[in-house]
């Protein structure tokens, strides 16, 4: 990262740990259900009326459930570089939380590099920048070896 100040593209969705970042979700203290993005008001399990939640870091590694790419520039509010650069998106299953979380793959990973069932881990990458800041977002990255 350059001389610009790194800031999260959205507050409170992930830790800003440059080495080992994690998504921030919540867990209902009543039934144990996980939520990402965070649920803090009322538990969505129909058999639970929980109103207290603990903040939790979600598993940093998961298994690719499916993947695709985007070959055309999406509409705003996506902030696209000019010219547009295609990117890859993966749906990743977190075994411990038993949930699937979407994320862009790190730049440079193409669909041909991916397979369902492959292990990936969470990193932070620059989503877009302005004159002073780099706005970071979570990405999935293939686990080496």
């Amino acid at each position: 990262m350059g001389t610009k100040t790194p800031v999260p593209a959205i507050d409170g969705w992930f830790t800003m740990d440059a080495e080992r970042p994690a998504l921030l979700g919540t867990r209902c203290t009543g039934c144990g259900s996980y939520f990402f993005p965070r649920e803090t008001f009322f538990c969505r399990n129909p058999d639970c009326t929980g109103r207290t939640f603990e903040e939790v870091e979600l598993s940093r590694r998961g298994i690719v459930w499916s993947y695709t790419n985007n070959c055309y520039q999406p509409p705003a509010p996506y902030v696209s570089p000019d010219p547009f650069v295609p990117y890859t998106i993966a749906a990743v299953e977190l075994p411990a939380e038993q949930m699937v979380v979407l994320g862009q793959m790190v730049p440079g990973v193409d669909v041909d590099d991916l397979a369902v069932g492959q292990e990936v881990e969470l990193v932070l990458s620059t989503l877009f920048e302005d004159d002073e800041h780099e706005y970071l977002v979570w990405n999935w990255k293939p686990v080496e070896g």
Partner: peptide
Amino acid sequence: WLRFRLLGATNPTYFALYARRRMD
């Protein structure tokens, strides 16, 4: 709004995830 902002996930993104899953 957020899925466009943070992921650039269009409607075809989701259709394609299901399609790839069928292939696999």
